[in-house]
Design a protein around this nucleic acid. Sequence first.
DNA 1: ATACTTGCAAATGATTTGCCAGTGT
DNA 2: ACACTGGCAAATCATTTGCAAGTAT
Lengths: 158, 158
Amino acid sequence: MTDTHPGPALVAQTAAEAEGIVRSRGLRVTAARRLVIEALFAADAPVTAEEIAAGLDARLPRSDVGSVYRNLETLGSIGLVRHVHLGHGPGLYALAATIAAAYLTCEGCGERRPASMAELEPVTDAIRERFGYEAHLSHFPISGLCASCAREGGEASR
Amino acid sequence: MTDTHPGPALVAQTAAEAEGIVRSRGLRVTAARRLVIEALFAADAPVTAEEIAAGLDARLPRSDVGSVYRNLETLGSIGLVRHVHLGHGPGLYALAATIAAAYLTCEGCGERRPASMAELEPVTDAIRERFGYEAHLSHFPISGLCASCAREGGEASR
DNA sequence: ATACTTGCAAATGATTTGCCAGTGT
DNA sequence: ACACTGGCAAATCATTTGCAAGTAT
């Protein structure tokens, strides 16, 4: 699982930098692994393992999802990658350096709004005060209704 | 899916009451269905479909998980049951009347702490103010570290 | 040369679905 | 009677794993 890993999240800014980190851990930079890393750098939002695998086929004919999962897991174990579960579908993967601190998902329109740690402060503060929990809102979504869908819902139920 | 359903959650307080609601919807009260309902009333926390099925075997020899899933889905469609995903494992089901408004799960000790809507108010208020979202924290957990695990973690990383 | 990796296939876990016999109402 | 349900098996979806061949270092 790419879940929790030791050490802090790594902030690689380029694929080359990420590859250096991979090598520095004694891991190898193979064609398949490089392409997974590049796919993650190319994505501007979390993606599924299947999506990454689909993109690979063009440049690496014999690749398979199993290896993609294995690579995501490996990259996760060294803190380069994280994954989230934003709904009932498959898990979504992204670089630890670019993934949001949390995602708000709208049950109405499906909007997926990333939130920074700074923006979340009032929320995590409220949770800390009320429950004594140090909340990590990064793995599961903050689900609900966005402003406009909440408005519609309010009208509809009147 | 037992996800979202029309109408408000139903607040059946007894199995007999729940059965009445089932009948009032034109649905039938069969042995298998009754046992699922009773299992949910007997549980004091959300349970998996497998757990319910396992409990059934004693009183209904030929039951199977498939039917349990179908019943949970049916009962969910009329607002009697809801389910949550509190981690990477299977979904957990409970009566809409007794399920918590949210669950805080500790990544350290695994504690699963239910929270009422009233307790959550400062949290949902903060989310509304900051993001304009009407948060429904009931389907996914508020994951993090409970007070004591946060303390330990803090010491360890010093 | 050696250990890490891959492709491929089969296994697993969770949940869904097709079918037809069975049974509440 | 008639439509809703149940049991059973097979299908699906996401993810993991065993294994032998391939390859980065």
